[in-house]
Nucleic acid binder design. Structure first.
Lengths: 134, 134
DNA sequence: ATAATGGCTGGAGTTAACTCCATGTCAACC
DNA sequence: GGTTGACATGGAGTTAACTCCAGCCATTAT
């Protein structure tokens, strides 16, 4: 009566995994060197990436997209690979990062407001300029 | 009957200007090498920065804060130093950048949402974990 | 008069995050 | 059984955006 879960046993070579997560093979190896993701190896020492790895990479990319430097992601990864006892630390990191993102958002909104103003003054200036030429 | 405008004639040395705009002297010289800001020189070849320069730097920093690479800022600066005839081009650049910022904001908001979810699941996981230890 | 201060130039060094390359192994296809 | 193709490793190269340094002038302070 157990449901078959293909995905549990499935694993990808670095080439196909690279395509799936849309990163280059070299980048994956670089992330491994930095300790962000450490895939299993098969009997020939080839990297084997799983569905879990895919989820983990997706999360890494979110952190990267919100400007977390690799060093910090590496720190988070280290804790994660250490196991459940580090959950509180990891949560604290994410909560700190959350505040950072909120700050970033504020800055972006401020700058967008100013940019909009600037664009408006450009419209006015260009109107004037066009008229002065006629 | 003309109003005296001190600020028009005022100018700062690179050292004091650096403090005012909160950039290092080296960064200012680097920006100049890249063509972002080209201050006047005095009779001894020393850079003299004006109030206009301060405003311009403030704008450069806004562009930087919204992740515009120096190459693009340089392009904008080039047009600006070329004069009024480039206003339309500059406005177009800013309008394009505006769209970019809006995209960035969207991404940030998306990622923030996911992060919040993740933090919530951490809270639940940690509760469970604490109980399992008692 | 000399020493400290501040600025100038050209060029080298640094950091992050990749990216590329030479060389080598192994399984598979013709 | 030789070639092809995917993967492995170690290390060099690249780009952006600074940052630092040596060697040289001019001005100011003692």
């Amino acid at each position: 009566m157990s449901t078959i879960k293909w995905s549990d046993k499935m694993s990808y070579s670095i080439g196909t995994f690279a395509e799936i997560v849309n990163l280059s093979i070299d980048t994956l190896r670089y992330y491994e060197k930095e300790g962000l993701i450490i895939p299993e190896r098969d009997e020939h020492n080839r990297r084997t990436y799983t569905e879990k790895d895919r989820e983990w990479i997706a999360f890494i990319l979110r952190l990267k997209e919100t400007a977390m430097p690799i060093k910090k992601i590496k720190e988070y990864a280290r804790l994660r690979y250490e196991g459940d006892s580090t959950m509180k630390e990891r949560r604290a990191m994410l909560e700190q990062h959350r505040l950072f993102i909120i700050e970033e958002k504020k800055k972006l909104e401020e700058n967008l407001k100013h940019l909009d103003k600037k664009i408006l003054t450009y419209h006015a200036m260009i109107d004037k300029y066009e008229k002065s030429k006629s």
